[in-house]
Amino acid sequence: MDNQFKEHDVILNFSFLGHRDVQAHFADLNIALLSGRHIQTGEGYLFTLVNHYQDEFKIFYRSLYGLELKQAKVDNTNYYYLDFPEEGKGKLYTSDRFREMTSWEIIVALMLLNMYYERSFEQAKVINWEIIQKEIMESELAPLYKKAFFNNSIREFYTNSEWKVLFDKFKRVLRIFDRWGWIKLQTVEEGEFVFLIRESIDRFGKLYQYEISHFDIFIEQINQKK
């Protein structure tokens, strides 16, 4: 009897899917969340929908996917994302929807996280390829960035072809981060990109605390595997 009641209770909670605003935008929201997107303040109808029905969506994703809909707040900006429950990995863990970040993605994300906090007093954290190059060559972490991005080679000068290879790799990673909601790409063209670092990049800091705290060791481990 108790189990029947619980199942009925869940069905009642799913009745919100019949609401007009949910029907209009649920497909987009569901695809975005399941693909790993972080949906934050300012994303129009997606944020409005998940924010308004957050309690209902928490039950929905927990029941159907074994995932937790979570909310976080950074610099007065709220964002939502799906995560695995603490007691298990959820139903999508073994599917092709789940994967760990690659070493390249971790390094780029760490750089962007540092740049975000360095610009804490700037309302819009707008970054382009020239700023990335300067960060690699002149920042406090420049020796480690050079090791990571240029095959363990620390120099004062890199050729145009070396920068071109690095640019293409960055562009691919940035497209992934754009899908995840950590950045917003504004311009992508030959030899240039412009993007905005979004508040939800904070999630990376929570996921990879060890790599951030031991970045030098992490870089050495990567280079040893090459």
Rank of each mutant, 00 (worst) to 15 (best):
Y61V: 01
Y61T: 00
Y65N: 06
Y65I: 02
Y65A: 05
Y65D: 05
G66W: 02
G66P: 03
L67W: 04
E68N: 14
L69P: 03
L69F: 02
L69S: 03
L69W: 02
K70W: 08
K70H: 09
Q71F: 09
Q71M: 14
Q71E: 09
Q71Y: 08
Q71G: 10
A72Y: 01
V74S: 03
V74F: 05
N76M: 09
Y79I: 08
Y79P: 03
Y80V: 02
Y81V: 06
Y81P: 01
L82S: 01
D83G: 11
F84A: 14
P85S: 10
P85N: 12
E86H: 13
E86Y: 12
E87G: 11
E87S: 14
G88A: 05
K89R: 12
G90D: 12
G90V: 06
K91V: 13
K91E: 14
K91L: 15
Y93W: 09
T94F: 13
S95Q: 06
D96N: 12
F98P: 09
E100C: 09
E100G: 08
E100L: 07
M101E: 11
T102D: 08
T102L: 12
S103W: 07
S103N: 11
W104R: 15
W104D: 13
E105L: 00
I106A: 05
I106P: 01
I107W: 09
V108D: 05
V108Q: 03
L110S: 15
L110A: 13
M111R: 03
N114Q: 10
N114S: 15
M115I: 03
Y116F: 15
Y116W: 06
E118I: 12
S120L: 12
S120Y: 10
S120V: 13
F121L: 13
E122G: 10
E122L: 13
A124V: 15
A124W: 12
K125D: 03
I127G: 01
I127T: 02
I127F: 00
N128H: 06
W129N: 00
W129S: 02
E130N: 11
I131Y: 09
I132G: 00
I132D: 02
Q133A: 06
Q133R: 11
Q133D: 10
K134Q: 04
E135Q: 06
E135L: 03
E135R: 04
I136A: 00
I136H: 01
M137W: 00
M137Y: 00
E138F: 10
S139P: 03
E140W: 06
E140K: 15
E140D: 15
P143H: 09
P143I: 10
Y145Q: 05
K147F: 07
K147T: 04
A148M: 05
A148G: 09
F149M: 10
F149V: 11
N151A: 09
N151V: 06
S153I: 13
S153W: 12
R155I: 10
